[in-house]
Design a binder for these strands. Structure first.
Length: 559
RNA sequence: UGGGGCGUAGCCAAGUGGUAAGGCAACGGGUUUUGAUCCCGUGAUUCGCAGGUUCGAAUCCUGCCGCCCCAGCCA
């Protein structure tokens, strides 16, 4: 991905428009429908729209496209505002709704009738579909297409007055039933819905369609560039048609770009909703969800998300971006800001047989290896420790430089230890290691400068803080779950693993949700829902790059 | 079979007639008390394919192939 993209095609168009003196100010909008949570795809749109606004000293609206009551909820409205703010963007006083313009939109619809380019159709939904024709065959005109202006006006006003049942009438644009562009075959402008709207209550029983409301709302707000995704490309002639007919003061221009798809995940709000309904995940903000709320709870920094979409770029080519690209951005950001700590996820007991019983030494540990300004902390060291099960192998391959029988390893910020004995249970499982430590090798202060190949992390058994740690993996087993018949068939059964871990004591009273790095394991943060000081729950944000895991995997596949 | 888009390395992406940027991934090597970080190095005789124009083409022309979107009273 381009690190410093010159100017994407949209910014180029805007640049040229500005050069040509077409606008005094650039005005954009981010127009979500409040029918679900925002996801990684929206991050792209948010960054584009607000980014373009900021870069040009322009303005950006946050506008709810709330033209379809029944699908929309206040919960989503609240979540959207929270998410956009969290990403670092501000709409100031430019928070609007398509529903703010219902009266104006209605008046314009009457104007379309006056102009003779809109009519009330009595055909049923099924009939309209049948009359529309197919992709290769032209449609045919509705028998109601040639009603008089007076009759249309009367009917439309009675639609508004609530005289008709849902589905009995629609207002349609009179364009061309034979158009090769399906969107121009007399599209619906208004439909009857006897349904309370979350903002306008029961004021209306007719609601405008997206294609009609969107372009006009853009015009009302003085939007100069209306940026949307590719699937609206062939709606543009219709977008322009309404503007041509009604000649509003401002003339917005719609430009389309490709959606951002992430490998091994889905972004359809409907499908994400199904994951919740089927209890595959715990909610819209489950840390495995590609929603902004989910990624925030997971611990992905807002800056990393912004960096990611910036690197992905703005083009018209379908994208399916590898997870690794996102994870790289997360690691890059966290690597600098996260303090280091030690934690053992899958504990294996180590007893230092030559270490005095009852003795405790405080070891000084750097909070960041590359940034001394972040200070140090003290960690207790004692005779009994936990180390990671993965850091011991009874029959280790040549390149394994962690602990093995008779082998030596450095304990991070501690001593060099040697494995003398392996204790097993009745089933042959390794349950404890008997080791000796070399008192001359104390970290920083040792009188010996001998080195060993490996360094592993540890936590003092007597001082460790028990915690639940949740390890996350991709939700699906295939790169493009959208392309399979049933996405529920390709779920990753191991997307969540919960382990009972032990954390170093400095983590005992953490209350916020700041990310830290558990050395050699990855980045973690307290879970914003479940974590308490008494019962700590941490999320793994992302692992560290793991060259050893790769080597192991290769060895397995060639063996 | 209609219309609208898109095809540059595994994934993104610059490039707009003058001889293929960059990032991620991958692979080598160096530093390292995180097999992390950091540093250095390695990739396209070629831009979906085939012709053509030109001294010269990823860029222009023609034809073909592949992928995506459209038949909601959803957005």
């Amino acid at each position: 991905m381009s690190d410093a993209p010159g100017r994407d095609f949209i910014r180029q168009i805007i640049f040229e428009d500005l050069e040509a003196g077409k606008h005094d100010e650039i005005v954009t909008r981010f127009p979500p429908e409040p029918n679900g949570y925002l996801h990684i795809g929206h991050v792209m749109s948010i960054c584009l729209n607000f980014g373009v606004g900021e870069e040009n000293d322009g303005r950006t609206f946050l506008r709810y496209d709330d033209t379809n009551p029944g699908k929309e909820k206040q919960e989503y409205v609240d979540a959207i505002e929270r998410d956009v703010h969290w990403l670092g963007f501000d709409w100031g006083d430019r928070l609007t709704h398509a529903s703010d313009y219902f009266e104006r939109l209605y008046e314009s619809a009457e104007k379309l009738i006056d102009l003779g380019v809109a009519y009330v159709d009595d055909l049923s939904a099924e009939e309209i579909r049948a009359y529309r024709g197919t992709l290769t065959e032209p449609g045919k005109n509705s028998p109601y297409r040639d009603r008089s202006v007076e009759e249309n006006m009367d009917l439309f006003r009675r639609m508004r007055a609530g005289e008709f049942e849902d589905g009995t009438h629609v207002l349609r644009a009179r364009i061309d039933m034979a158009s090769p562009n399906m969107n121009l075959r007399d599209p619906t402008i208004y439909r009857i819905r006897h349904l309370d709207h979350q903002r306008t209550g029961d004021t209306w029983c007719i609601y405008p369609m997206y294609d009609y409301a969107h372009g006009l709302s853009d015009a009302y707000e003085g939007i100069t560039h209306s940026l949307c995704t590719l699937e609206f490309e062939d709606h543009r002639p219709l977008y322009d048609w309404f503007l041509d007919q009604l000649q509003p003061e401002h003339r917005p221009r719609q430009i389309e770009f490709s959606r951002l798809n992430l490998a091994y995940t889905i972004t359809s709000k409907r499908k994400l909703g199904l994951l919740i309904e089927n209890n595959v995940v715990s909610g819209w903000d489950d840390p495995r969800m590609p929603t902004i709320a989910g990624m925030r709870r997971r611990g992905y920094p807002a800056l990393a998300l912004r960096d990611f979409v910036k690197r992905a770029g703005v083009t018209k080519k379908d994208k399916l971006i590898e997870m690794g690209a996102l994870e790289n951005c997360v690691r890059e950001d966290l690597g600098d800001i996260a303090e280091r700590r030690m934690a053992v996820l899958r504990p294996l007991k180590v007893v230092l047989t030559n270490y005095p019983e009852g003795q405790v030494e405080m070891m000084e540990a750097m909070n960041h290896p590359n940034n001394p300004d972040m200070g140090t902390r003290e960690i207790p060291f004692s005779r009994e420790l936990w180390i990671e099960q993965d850091d011991f192998m009874e029959e280790a391959p040549r390149k394994f430089f962690r602990l093995k029988p008779g082998g030596e390893v450095r304990l991070r910020f501690g001593y060099i230890i040697k494995c003398e004995d392996v204790i097993k249970d009745a089933d042959g499982n390794v349950i404890e290691l008997r080791c000796t430590y070399d008192p001359e090798t104390r970290s920083g202060a040792g009188s010996s400068d001998r080195k060993v190949k490996g360094t592993i992390h540890w936590v003092s058994a007597a001082h460790g803080v028990p915690a639940t740690v949740r390890l996350y993996d991709r939700l699906f087993t295939v790169p493009d779950p959208n392309s399979v018949d049933d996405f529920m068939e390709v779920l990753n059964p191991d997307s969540l693993e919960t382990v009972a871990a032990t954390l170093e004591p400095t983590l005992a009273d953490v209350t916020g949700s700041d990310p830290v790095q558990f050395e050699r394991l990855g980045y973690f943060c307290p879970d914003s829902h479940s974590h308490t000081v008494d019962a700590p729950v941490w999320n793994r944000i992302v692992t560290l790059r793991d060259t050893w895991a790769r080597i192991e995997k290769q060895a397995m596949s060639t063996a």
